[in-house]
Write a protein that binds this DNA or RNA. Structure first.
Lengths: 212, 212
DNA sequence: GGTTCGATCTAATCACTGTCAAGATGAACT
DNA sequence: AGTTCATCTTGACAGTGATTAGATCGAACC
């Protein structure tokens, strides 16, 4: 019979906790050299182990990426929660959540990219990553209910509103984080004004679709 | 002195037009095996040439991807133009453009992914890909002006509205194209209803931000 | 027509990657 | 003590992006 930790799995033997060390190493490689340089071997090198060592903790390269993605969503969730005062007006809360999302993507572009690359691979993440995402998603959902725009008993409508907000935030993250729009930002006097400006026009598309 | 075609560069010698053939081969590989399988060697194999042959037409792998991306944006532009009746009401036109965008992404997920992977690499595409994108972007811009929500003389405001629409469409493309939401779609009776539903809530986020 | 010249393609090679099988290590259990 | 077994290393394989030197073919020139 073996003593195993219910969280991290079997107790580490040689290395202190290689799984943890590998994830940290991956994070470092990502921040330093970008997502294109993220190879299993580079991660192993960074952690100071042999190229094959990671295979005892991750079945695949994609499983490593998935783990990074999960951690990323956890971090995102934390950041959102910190940013949104649960006692403040729901309007501000929804806004704060959205801004936090965009700022996270801008602050950690490489991790954000891994997160979305993973979530696009349909065959992977049956429910695993969705579970990690649920934290952030449920936070938004709650704020949306409190906002009162959609009645909480209309489950479908609520879901749609959350998806809309999420996809707006994702689109914004791509645009604000990875594109420059430097001249436009300068004209508007800063990125915050730019962001607010884009947000104010977000409804136009939807209105056109529904009236048209 | 040499006769060179101003469009395709120097006239092809051995192969009929290897550059063209390579792009077609790349497109085939993408559709068949997905973006992860897109290697220079695979493309060369598909085109029936040696692994080094592509390097006479593309400096890099990334330059090949960039060319694919450019073609993708051209295709997207064409599809948008076909979808939006220029004589119809501008409301419908904006909606049609947005829907066309989302449907293109869903119909050609691999190409769409390459398009956005390229446009995220900041160091690449100084103006080249933006030029190709301009076609699609200017189409939206024109429709937005005709929509009359923003006055055409307020250049900054117009730009913001276009960016907002573009980023909403991108977010939608990711959500509708790559995520499933199958149960939700079923509840709403089809994907079109789902899409319309999400769109109708798109403004909520922006309103919250501005009022909050 | 034959020659030359340069664009085009091939062959060979290098460093790197993901992945695997087989062996070495050493902590934990009897 | 000795055994067990997860952990890690070694060594290897195929496939990748990239570069080089050399073969080859086409078009222009005489």
């Amino acid at each position: 019979m073996k003593l195993t930790c219910p969280i991290t799995g079997p107790k580490p033997y040689h290395h202190g906790d290689l799984r943890r060390a590998l994830l940290d190493a991956a994070s470092r490689v990502l921040e330093r050299e970008g997502p294109n340089a993220l190879s299993l071997r580079a991660v192993a090198r960074e952690a100071g182990v042999s190229p094959a060592a990671p295979y005892h903790h991750f079945k695949d390269k994609s499983e490593l990426m998935l783990a990074i993605s999960e951690e990323g969503f956890d971090q995102l969730y934390d950041f959102m929660r910190q940013s949104a005062d649960p006692d403040g007006p729901p309007m501000e809360r929804v806004a704060a959540i959205g801004v936090a999302y965009v700022e996270f993507a801008k602050a950690h572009p490489s991790i954000y990219r891994v997160m979305y690359d993973c979530s696009r691979d349909l065959e992977a993440l049956p429910d695993k990553a969705h579970k990690a995402e649920d934290g952030a998603y449920s936070l938004l959902k709650k704020a949306m209910i409190d906002l009162g725009v959609v009645s909480s008993d209309q489950e479908v409508d609520l879901e749609l509103a959350c998806i809309a907000a999420w996809c707006a935030a994702h689109g914004l993250a791509e645009m604000v984080g990875f594109r420059q729009f430097d001249s436009l930002k300068a004209k508007m006097g800063g990125e915050k004004a730019f962001l607010a400006g884009v947000l104010s026009h977000l409804g136009t598309f939807g209105q056109a679709r529904n009236r048209g």
